[in-house]
Amino acid sequence: MSAFRDDVESMIPALRRYARALTRDVDIADDLVQDTLVRALRSERLFLGGDLRSWLYTILTNLNRNRRRSLARRPQFAPLQDTAADASGTEAEGRDIARALATVVEDQRSVLLLVMLEGLSYREVAEIQGVPIGTVMSRLARARAHVKAFLDGERPALRRVK
């Protein structure tokens, strides 16, 4: 296997994590990852260097944007959600953060996840989204404010007291 393929392969777990948080649906998320991988593997010769990780996140982010666009035209075709798949030990907290994410608009959610979950730099996210760093920062600020407001409003009784 080529080094390129090894590198792509090593990114699968992180891509799945990002896709799952982005779409909150197991099947859609893995569809996105699969499409991303296929595309990346086919484009090996076109990859001119640069950061493979950012490139893969870029493909996935764009594919998701297209997917949402086509869904918006035909809302009745939205794939059915797999409700059983996502239970876990951290359910109380997990459900809250997942629900909070659902209320954040796409571009902001993407920034939030790339920075906070995937640990990318502002510059990398700016390249992924094709926007200036200032835009990334304002999207991040808005997303954080939105999620915080949602969580505060969602469960005032559980708010952390330090």
Partner: peptide, 29 residues
């Protein structure tokens, strides 16, 4: 503090996805 707690919640919720066995349909080969 809230932003940090948010990051913790995200990791608590989604890191395990990265630990799951990779589905066969995503295998590079």
């Amino acid at each position: 503090q809230a932003w940090r707690a948010m990051a913790d919640a995200l990791h608590a919720r989604y890191d395990r996805v990265a630990d799951e066995a990779i589905p066969r349909r995503l295998e590079i080969d």
